[in-house]
Structures are given as C-alpha cells and as structure tokens.
C-alpha cells in the first residue's frame, strides 16, 4: 500500500494540491478506508463552506456567552436554584476556556453521536467526543440550559450546565471521566441519552 495521505486530505479537499499530487491521493484512498474517511470529512467541510457562502439565510451564531441567559433562566424557574451560582462561576471561566476547547478539538481526532430522546419535546442534541476519550462537547438546539451528566458505575455524575448561545446550548468538558453513557436533564428528569461505543 502507498503511504498514508495525512494532511494531504485537507489540502486535496481545499484544492491546494497539484494534479499529480491529487492523483497520488486518489491512488491511496481506494485501498485505505481510514484515509478515505479523513478525506471524506475534509470534503464535507469544503462542501459546507460552499453552502455557507451561497445561502444568505444561514447565519452562524456568534461565539459569545451571554451570562444573562443563565440568570434569566434562573428567574424563569428553568434552573434549580442551587445551580445558579455554580453555573455563574463556570460561566466566567468558560469564555476563557473556549479558545482552549477549539484548540483541543483541532488537535485531536473526534466523532459525534446523536442524543436519543427519553421524553417528549427533547431538543435535537449531539455529543462530539475525542476518540482518545479526553473531552466531550455537548450541543443542543434549545434556548434552555440543560444539565449534562455522565453515568459511571450506575450513578449519575453531573458535568455541568450547557451554556445558552442564542438558539442553542453547549458545554465543553475537558475531562469527562470514564463513563460512556451521557444524559441531558432539564432539572426535573432525564430527557435524552447517548451511549458512546466502548473504547
């Protein structure tokens, strides 16, 4: 088998390779599923760039954390009161942490899995996770803060509240422990769950 393509996957998808270099990538990916998968990821990203560029009604949300959203949720009774202060503390730390979160995501291989609803009205949510198991990143299409928990040996360990960013909520967890089953809780009950494949 020819050499693995490595970074050439992204260069190929971006159109930054010469015709000869592209031919080498083509020859390799037909016999290597791992490199074909990496190339496919890069191609889907470029396809998303093309779509982002050509559609005016799809606006990305800003990467900002409105601490006011948690406060509002507290006032509206959406968050158990005990959560408020600790969520606020984490909120301040979270902004600074975001850069680190993106850096961690870029420097590692990750997959993603969809949460499955346990209750009616559960928002669409997914868990992006490092294949090394180091970190998880939960994203839910909801304006309400939800609690992310991991199940370890039959008990639920809270990882933190999702931060509301406009119409979605998210949480990056640097060390999510060893559990492979995650749930989102709305303060009263578990509303959705995802189980990751065993490492």
């Amino acid at each position: 088998m020819t050499a693995h393509i490595g970074e050439s996957a992204e260069l190929y998808a971006l159109g930054a390779l010469s015709e000869d270099e592209r031919a080498q990538v083509d020859a390799h990916v037909v016999q290597c599923d791992a490199c074909a998968a990496r190339l496919g990821e890069a191609e889907r990203t470029v396809a998303a760039m093309e779509e982002t560029g050509s559609s005016a009604n799809r606006r990305p949300r800003a990467w900002r954390f409105p601490a006011a959203a948690v406060a509002a949720a507290f006032v509206l009774g959406l968050v158990p009161s005990g959560w408020f202060w600790s969520a606020q503390q984490r909120a301040n730390a979270y902004d600074a942490d975001r850069e680190g979160a993106l850096a961690a995501m870029v420097s590692s291989h990750f997959s993603h899995a969809q949460f499955q609803p346990l209750a009616a009205g559960a928002p669409k949510a997914k868990l992006i996770y490092a294949r090394s198991g180091r970190w998880v990143y939960a994203v839910a299409q909801t304006g309400k803060p939800l609690l992310l928990e991991v199940r370890e040996g039959g008990k639920a360990v809270p990882l933190g509240m999702l931060h509301v960013l406009g119409g979605s909520a998210e949480l990056f967890v640097r060390d999510a422990g060893t559990g492979r089953s995650f749930v989102l809780n709305d303060g009263r009950r578990d509303i959705e769950r995802v189980s990751l494949p065993a490492r």
Partner: peptide, 9 residues
C-alpha cells in the same frame, strides 16, 4: 491548511 480546515469542521 490542514489544521484550519479541521477547525472549520
């Protein structure tokens, strides 16, 4: 280029 595209993903 590689890290940039993966960051966009």
């Amino acid at each position: 280029l590689s890290a940039g595209l993966r960051a966009l993903r």
